[in-house]
Design a protein around this nucleic acid. Structure first.
Lengths: 193, 193
DNA sequence: TCGTAATTTCAGTATTTTCTGAAATATCGG
DNA sequence: CCGATATTTCAGAAAATACTGAAATTACGA
C-alpha cells in the first residue's frame, strides 16, 4: 500500500468498516480512496495505491457501480475508465440509504406481507404473525418517513435535522393554538425505559 | 430445522439478512426465532428448532447478549437460561441503533477527529482532510439528531415520524408568524435532483 | 479488419469465518 | 464438598468468501 499516512489511516479504517457491512475490505478501501481523492482515478492508479491485483480492483469497481456509489468518467484522448465519488457527501448518503433499502428493507417487507396473508395453523403461528405484523408496521412507518425525507432538498433536510426535537415545542404551540386533535390524557409520567 | 412453515420462512430470511449485517446466519436465525416466540426459549429448545450444534447456539447467544439484544430469564425450579426479546419492538430498534452507533460511528468519529488534528504534508493530504471534515460534520449532525430522538418517548417519536415533512409546513407558518431568522432568498426553483 | 490497450471473467488458491464435538468449567440443591 | 445438569471454551473441520494470475473479451483508432 502506497499512500500518505493520513490517507492510509482512513483507507484502512474503511476497509475494516466495510467488513461489518457486507462489503469486503478491498471494496471499502477503493471507495475510501476515491472519496478522498481530488480527482478521478483509473483502475491502475488504484492498483498502485492499494497494492492489490488488477482483477480485484476490477471486481471492486464493478460492485461499487452496482451500488451506484461511483461515477464513471473519461478523459479526452485516454480510453481508460476514471472513477470518482460525488462531491456532495449528502448525495452519497442518499444513495447508500436508497440502495440498502432496496436490498434489505424492501424484500423483507415483501416477505412479511406474504407471510401475513397466510392462515396460521396453530396458536404458535398466530403469535408469530402478530410479531411479524409489528415488524411490518414499523418498517412501513420508517420507509414512509424515509421517502418523505429523501424528497427534501438537502438544505431543508439539514435544517430539519438541526432542529431535532425542538420541533416538539413548535408542535406543542400548535396544539395549544388550534386544539385540533383530541386532548389525550397528559402528564402520566411514562414507564419509559 | 424443525419449525412451522410460516416461522421457518421468517427465520431463514433473517438468517440470510444477518449475513449482510456483519452478523452470522445462525445468530440471525436465533434472534428471529426468539423474536417470534411467545415465550422464552432455552438453548436446547433452540438447538432442536434450528438443528445446529449446542456450542453454536451458546456462542450465538453470547453474541446477542453482547449486543444487548436478548433478555436472560429464569424459571423457578429450572436452572437453565431462558432467552427472550423485548415485547416492545421499538426497544429493539433503539438497542440496535445504539449498539451500531457504538461500534461503527463512534470509532469512526474518533478516528476522523484524530486525523483532522494532524498537519497535512501535501496538497493531496489537504484535500483529503477537507473531505474528512465533510464526513465528520455529517456524522456529527446525524449523531446529534439521533441523540435527541433516542431521548423521546416512543409515542412522541412515532408521532414525529408520522408527521414527516408536514413539519415543514408548520415551520413555514412559524416563519411567517414570527419572522425571527433572516429572510433568505426564497422561491428560486430548486435545481433539485 | 487489425493491432493495441483496457477491462472482465474465471478456475484455482488463499484467507477468513463459521460450525462442531469433546473437554473443561460453572452452578446449584443438598 | 458431591453429583448432576447446564454452559462455555477451543482446536480442528467445513464452508464461505476474497483474491490472484492468466486467458478471454471488449473497445477503439487506424
Amino acid at each position: 500500500m502506497n499512500l500518505p499516512p493520513l490517507i492510509q489511516t482512513f483507507v484502512l479504517h474503511f476497509g475494516e468498516m466495510g467488513s461489518r457491512w457486507g462489503i469486503n475490505r478491498t471494496v471499502g478501501q477503493i471507495y475510501a480512496l476515491l472519496f478522498l481523492s481530488s480527482e478521478p482515478l483509473n483502475a491502475e492508479d488504484i492498483v498502485e495505491r492499494l497494492g492489490v491485483s488488477r482483477s480485484n480492483v476490477s471486481m471492486g469497481l464493478k460492485e461499487l457501480q452496482a451500488w451506484n456509489l461511483v461515477r464513471l468518467q473519461h478523459r479526452p484522448g485516454d480510453r481508460r475508465d476514471y472513477f470518482s465519488t460525488p462531491d456532495d457527501i449528502w448525495q452519497i448518503v442518499r444513495t447508500l440509504v436508497e440502495e440498502r433499502k432496496k436490498r434489505e428493507i424492501d424484500p423483507t417487507l415483501t416477505l412479511l406481507r406474504e407471510v401475513l396473508m397466510q392462515e396460521p395453523a396453530s396458536a404458535e403461528e398466530r403469535h408469530a404473525q402478530t410479531r411479524m405484523r409489528d415488524m411490518h408496521d414499523l418498517f412501513e412507518l420508517l420507509t414512509d418517513w424515509y421517502a418523505e425525507m429523501q424528497r427534501l432538498e438537502t438544505e431543508r433536510l439539514v435544517q430539519l435535522l438541526k432542529l431535532g426535537t425542538k420541533v416538539q415545542k413548535i408542535l406543542d404551540v400548535k396544539d395549544r393554538l388550534f386544539l385540533t386533535s383530541g386532548s389525550k390524557k397528559r402528564g402520566g409520567s411514562g414507564k419509559d425505559k
